[in-house]
């Protein structure tokens, strides 16, 4: 344990230094923390912003949306990235610590359901997905596939994606519904782990943000009910909201943004910032 803690510490120190630009002494230091889904996107924004504003220095770290919220509440970050909305409990805690929470929608993400390329199941309804993840549907032949047991994969509980999927798919939109993930569902620590597992396992099904989808997996079309229409997640279907599983990616600040923080958020919302969203395979606001 001790050895691990030490090596982790050394690594994080190394990475912090690696991430710092030459202008280490810059006064405009911004700390961004939160969603693992958004960490690469945040890094891309930060790099471009720092290129244009050499005096600014932005550090982006992940850890999960909840980690970002905790940092916002304790005042250890300037911007919390989150792939879910702030919870009432967190809002209260932030107010108690004297923070005035501001929310910014900075991009959109579609949640794609992924299966192995050899899987003959080409379309699924939300209800069927809920059945798979609650353990009611156990075999692919119940969905028109081969006679194989379904291997359901999910993100870990610290992930905003997990919470979104739980509320919108497993509980079919009822936020506090009685349905829950079956104990048999595998909880993987990253989106990359889900893609690699799904691409290796014929019977697997998982879900990831659209940005993580690769051609090693197949994406079935999704519909709200079995009357259809079945829609595949793409840039267009997410922007016109015909694809049912999309969510806003958010920034939270602990006070009215000013100075570099404000400039950075303005940059993110600008035409240029939204172009980076597109390049990073997320869905821009416009």
């Amino acid at each position: 344990m001790k050895r691990k803690a030490l090596s982790l510490m050394c690594l994080s120190v190394l990475f912090t230094y690696a991430a710092m630009p030459a202008a280490y002494a810059a006064r405009d230091m911004i700390q961004i923390k939160g969603s693992d889904t958004m960490v690469n996107l945040g890094q891309a924004w930060a790099e471009e912003f720092m290129m244009q504003n050499p005096e600014a220095s932005i550090a982006v770290t992940g850890g999960g949306s909840g980690t970002g919220m905790a940092a916002l509440i304790s005042g250890t970050c300037d911007i919390a990235e989150s792939s879910r909305e702030i919870k009432d409990q967190e809002m209260e805690a932030a107010h108690k610590n004297g923070h005035d929470v501001h929310e910014f929608i900075v991009a959109v993400d579609a949640i794609a359901v992924v299966v192995h390329p050899s899987n003959p199941v080409k379309q699924l309804t939300i209800e069927q997905l809920s059945g798979i993840y609650t353990g009611k549907i156990k075999n692919w032949n119940e969905l028109g596939g081969k006679d194989q047991k379904i291997l359901a994969l999910s993100r870990e509980r610290n992930s905003g994606t997990h919470v979104y999927f739980l509320e919108e798919v497993v509980r079919m939109g009822v936020e506090k519904g009685p349905e829950q993930f079956a104990p048999e569902v595998l909880m993987l620590p990253s989106s990359q782990a889900i893609i690699s597992e799904v691409s290796q396992s014929e019977t697997a099904i998982g879900y990831v943000g659209l940005g993580y989808v690769s051609d090693r997996v197949h994406i079935p079309a999704i519909a709200l009910s079995n009357q259809g229409p079945f829609v595949s997640p793409t840039l267009e279907t997410t922007m016109d909201k015909s694809y049912p599983l999309s969510r806003s990616l958010l920034f939270y600040t602990g006070r009215e943004p000013e100075g570099t923080v404000k400039n950075f958020i303005d940059f993110v919302l600008s035409e240029e910032g939204q172009e980076i969203v597109r390049i990073m395979d997320f869905v821009p606001l416009r």
Partner: peptide, 19 residues
């Protein structure tokens, strides 16, 4: 597949609200 105590703490701590 199994879930250990250590992995549970590490995976879920990030999302819990303190208290």
């Amino acid at each position: 597949p199994v879930r250990t105590m250590t992995a549970t703490i590490a995976a879920e701590m990030g999302e819990t609200v303190i208290g």
